Amino acid sequence: MGNQKTKKELWIVIFVVTIASLLFVFWFIIIDQNSINRPLKIIFFLLRIVFIFPVFLLVYFLAIKKYTPKDIGIWGIKCWYVSLPIILLIGGVTYILFPEGMQFQYYWQNNGITGFILFGFITAAIPEEITRTLFQSRLGIVLNSKSIAWFMVSLVWALQHIPIFVSRSAGDYYSAFISALGILPIGLLWGYLNERYKSIVPSVIIHGTNLWGLHNIF
């Protein structure tokens, strides 16, 4: 019975990940964002809130299935400090070897503290890590392999960014694919932290401040 429950939960997560991926393709590749009409922008905004943020998953797991945030691994503040040495290590290496990859000053000057928090945490780190930990934990149970689930979910997460990279590279799919592979290592890091500490807090802190990452050299 428990395994059937997990399979159902996994299919719910896969459904949300699929919709989110299609929204990325639609928004960054198929349509011209500058010419899209207002009603369609509103529809896309609502779909993004529901499936990319992801409100749908939070409602399903917390309100419908009655899990607590700690049950599903999206809370646990005691391990927050784990993020600090990782930020210092990778940030220091980037500063020494690839200073041009650091984007702190650019985002701080152009967006301020509010924009920095919105860009780093609200629109990226928190929603992505919620989805990742739900996907990875359920897939690991169904496959009976945490390591395979860890790699597969990290790979899916990286490939989801291809439409964004295609948009940034003016339609260069090869460069977009290479860029997606370039962020796979940090996806594996965040996935490991989520599993190791049963909380997304460390990975969210690292992810949310990820404007120093070595992946910026790709």
Rank of each mutant, 00 (worst) to 15 (best):
V55I: 15
K66V: 02
L57E: 05
L118M: 15
V82F: 03
V93S: 07
F61Y: 14
I42F: 05
I77E: 13
A125Y: 14
T114H: 15
I113N: 01
I130E: 06
I49N: 07
T114G: 15
V82E: 01
G73C: 03
K78Y: 09
F51L: 06
I90P: 13
F116G: 08
I74C: 10
I113M: 09
P127A: 09
I72H: 03
P69Q: 06
I130L: 12
W75L: 02
F121H: 00
Q105P: 01
Q109M: 00
I122Y: 14
F61S: 04
R48S: 04
G76P: 01
F45K: 02
K70H: 14
E100K: 04
T68N: 03
F98E: 06
P39C: 08
T68K: 03
Y60V: 01
L46Y: 03
F98D: 07
F51D: 02
I86R: 06
K65M: 00
G101R: 04
I64H: 07
T114V: 15
I113V: 13
I130S: 11
T94H: 00
D71E: 13
K78E: 14
L97I: 02
L97E: 03
G101H: 04
Q103L: 11
F53D: 05
T123K: 00
L118E: 12
F98Q: 10
G112C: 12
I122N: 08
I130R: 12
N111I: 00
F116R: 08
F53M: 10
K70S: 12
P127I: 11
E100L: 05
F56E: 01
L118A: 15
K41I: 05
M102V: 13
I74E: 04
Y95R: 01
I72L: 05
I86D: 04
P127C: 13
T131M: 02
I96Q: 12
G76I: 02
K66C: 03
I96Y: 14
E100C: 01
N110D: 04
S83I: 08
E100Y: 06
F45H: 01
L84S: 07
L84D: 10
V50N: 11
P85D: 07
I77G: 09
L118F: 12
P85A: 10
G112K: 06
E100G: 03
C79I: 04
G120R: 09
P85Y: 11
R48Q: 05
W108K: 02
A125W: 11
E128L: 07
E129G: 12
F51G: 06
I74D: 09
Y60K: 01
Y67T: 03
I87R: 13
K66R: 08
K41A: 05
V82P: 02
Y95S: 00
L118G: 14
Q103C: 00
I90M: 15
F121Y: 03
F116H: 11
I130F: 09
G91F: 07
F44Y: 11
Y95V: 00
P85Q: 12
I122W: 15
N110R: 07
Y67E: 02
I49Y: 13
K70G: 07
W80S: 14
I42E: 09
T123H: 00
K66H: 05
G76K: 06
G76R: 08
I113W: 12
A124H: 03
A63F: 14
